[in-house]
């Protein structure tokens, strides 16, 4: 890395600086299978230009290239895009659009551990690509809402059919959205917050 002699110092634009009073950040994850609209959603609600954090890993024994009798190793870079919303002078919220393949999640230490909750995006043309992700969230106890990203050529199922197909408890919200629109994506996040709020109420009663 060579920053010397360069007039472009990396970092946020001045309008993207968080106030000094910001004491803590919270995060939400946006998950779902391949191509369901995770990146689009992060981009449409973020107040900053979406950014990408990368992780590099080695993968052994793939594409078996043992011409030299040695084990082949390829380095793969996995990217995760994220955005940010300022909540108040004290709190900032980060949204992470996870990679579609679950086996890459462990690369980011703590990605799911502290997340307040998750948005599971589904595409009705390929509902099953988001099944694995939902199972993982259930196993880890991460509360989630389901957002149906409506593609024009996707089948439209009645919400109760979807609930049955996704095997979701009656209280888990299912909402339709168009992740290309900020207001629509915002409403999905609002649904998640209301759901978490209701969860807080019911859990504090027991």
């Amino acid at each position: 890395m060579d920053f010397k002699g360069s007039d472009t110092i990396p970092g946020p634009r001045s309008e993207d600086h968080l106030p000094h009073t910001t004491t803590a950040a919270a995060k939400i994850v946006i998950v779902g299978g391949f191509g369901v609209g995770k990146t689009t959603m992060v981009g449409s609600v973020s107040e900053i230009r979406p950014l990408t954090t990368e992780e590099t890993m080695t993968q052994a024994g793939i594409g078996v290239d043992d011409n030299y009798g040695s084990e082949s190793k390829t380095a793969t870079t996995v990217a995760m895009d994220f955005g940010r919303i300022r909540i108040s002078d004290q709190v900032v919220l980060y949204l992470f659009g996870t990679p579609g393949q679950e086996r890459f999640w462990f690369l980011w230490n703590g990605l799911f551990e502290g997340a307040l909750g998750a948005v599971v995006l589904v595409d009705t043309r390929r509902l099953e690509v988001s099944f694995e992700v939902m199972g993982r969230l259930e196993e880890r106890g991460v509360p989630f809402v389901v957002a149906v990203n409506t593609f024009p050529d996707g089948p439209r199922y009645p919400v109760e059919d979807l609930r049955a197909a996704l095997d979701l408890q009656p209280e888990v919200p299912i909402v339709e959205c168009d992740v290309r629109r900020r207001a629509s994506s915002r409403d999905v996040l609002m649904t998640l917050m209301r759901f978490l709020h209701a969860l807080a109420l019911s859990r504090s009663r027991t």
Binding site: T124, L127, E128, F131, M134, G135, E138, E139, R140, G141, P155, Y157, D161, L162, A165, L166, D167, L168, Q169
Partner: peptide, 10 residues
């Protein structure tokens, strides 16, 4: 639609 099966927390 295809059918999923809910999982339990581990």
């Amino acid at each position: 639609p295809p059918q999923r099966q809910r999982r339990q927390p581990v």
